[in-house]
């Protein structure tokens, strides 16, 4: 083993744009990246979900989310992506423990595992968009109706934002989380910065 070469430290998907991100406390809209979150994708069929869903939810300490919703206020949190399809997200560096715990919850500790749990930490990065104008910024390119009568805190949805596939998670009255594939993150952040210019 040679020592890690200088400059080989991990670089997040939009680290090069970090100086441009408006993150002024009290600003009309703020954007920041939460780099390198641990992410594990869970797939369960109906039978597995009944038997092992509660165990997985217990391990994650937040239960499993209902369709169209997210569970968990801090770390970890779980997003509903589709029927029997969940994404568990935790602090950076915890992917190994998260994966091992979820595999055990799905029955790996008893010798046979139901469903699947896969580490997808490198797939997406997390952007946090917040502030009174956050919803207006999203409305520039999001096809979902984000009005409080149809969408609110605790809801999540997979959709398209500025032609990029994202998981949109509303965490507070004016706080949104965007999980975007790392290869689209540069495009999405540049688009968001452009959409924000009139609000910042």
């Amino acid at each position: 083993m040679t020592a890690m070469a200088e400059g080989s430290a991990p670089r997040s998907a939009v680290a090069h744009l970090a100086p441009d991100l408006p993150d002024r406390p009290g600003g009309a809209v703020r954007l920041r990246e939460v780099a390198f979150p641990a992410q594990v994708e869970l797939r369960l069929d109906d039978e597995d979900a009944t038997a092992f869903g509660p165990r997985a939810g217990q391990f994650l300490c937040c239960g499993m989310p209902a369709p169209g919703h997210a569970a968990g206020a801090g770390d970890p949190y779980v997003l509903w992506l589709g029927p029997g399809w969940y994404l568990a997200v935790d602090r950076p560096g915890s992917a190994y423990g998260l994966l091992a715990g979820l595999r055990d919850a799905l029955g790996a500790d008893c010798g046979g595992m139901c469903g699947s749990a896969v580490d997808v930490s490198a797939a997406r990065t997390v952007l946090e968009l917040s502030g009174p104008s956050a919803r207006a910024v999203l409305a520039h390119g999001c096809l979902l109706d984000l009005h409080p009568r149809t969408f609110g805190p605790g809801r999540c949805a997979q959709t398209v934002l500025a032609q990029a596939q994202v998981v949109l998670h509303q965490t507070g009255a004016a706080d949104y989380r965007l999980l975007v594939r790392t290869s689209y993150a540069d495009h999405l952040v540049r688009w968001l910065l452009d959409a924000m210019t009139e609000y910042v």
């Binding site: 096809l143 997979q158 398209v160």
Partner: peptide, 9 residues
Amino acid sequence: WCGDRDEVE
């Protein structure tokens, strides 16, 4: 499963 969505999805 997801409700009303736009055609592009």
